[in-house]
Design a protein around this nucleic acid. Structure first.
Length: 205
DNA sequence: GGCCAGGACACCA
DNA sequence: TGGTGTCATGGC
């Protein structure tokens, strides 16, 4: 078995999978909606909800926030958990509309803590918001990512533990950090048929 | 027809 | 700190 570094892992994934074009969205508002709606949900279902929202509001921030509660729930229903997600969407979109510049001025740690305090924003959603909305380098230790790193590190780790281990070993620009997350998740979906990293490599961090 | 998806949260011990 | 139940739809 061959040892691999974080950089080499990134390069290996990139060479085999190519650019993943994440996060798919035409506006920041659509990005935020997708991030909430995709929680524990297949993105194929999310696309249906996003199409509904687009048709109803064209992703105008005020149009989104002015939707009656019942209408918003109806539009996002294909993504499941629609009662929770409608509430989370309102909170995060309101925060974005009213406080974006204040948030953008914060250092990354303070910004993450602020995002994390919002209902519906857990570890993963906070980190994808940092990565794709606020353009801060972040490492998203989601379930796909933890599964792969469990295989190549030969040890288990929860979200925070994996972040503490990996972040110091990363030295990526924002675009690479974004691509890394996309590559890790798409690798998780495609499975080891394409590239059996778990049986080939060992990562010592 | 069962399993799962690009989680978060409340509750419990 | 860690485990479990709940939220819910649609694709495969």
């Amino acid at each position: 078995m061959e040892t691999i570094t974080i950089d080499e892992l990134y390069q290996t994934l990139y060479k085999n999978l190519g650019p993943r074009h994440w996060w798919p969205a035409r506006s920041t508002e659509e990005l935020i909606c997708g991030m909430i709606l995709v929680q524990n949900t297949n993105y194929k279902n999310v696309f249906k909800s996003l199409a509904n929202l687009d048709a109803a509001t064209n992703f105008g921030i005020d149009a989104l926030l002015n939707l009656p509660e019942a209408k918003l729930q109806e539009l996002i229903m294909p993504s499941g958990f629609y009662k929770n997600k409608s509430r989370y969407l309102r909170v995060v979109l309101t925060e974005y509309r009213n406080h974006y510049h204040q948030l953008a001025a914060l250092d990354t740690a303070s910004l993450r803590a602020r995002l994390r305090s919002l209902p519906g924003v857990g570890n993963e959603t906070a980190d994808v918001l940092l990565l794709y909305v606020f353009m801060r380098p972040a490492f998203v230790a989601d379930s796909y990512t933890r599964r792969l790193f469990r295989l190549i590190r030969k040890q288990d780790a929860n979200y925070e533990q994996l972040q503490r281990a990996i972040v110091p070993a990363m030295h990526q620009r924002i675009q690479e950090a974004q691509e890394f997350h996309a590559l890790l998740d798409d690798y998780g979906k495609l499975g080891s048929d394409v590239l059996d990293l778990g049986n080939r490599y060992r990562l010592d961090v």
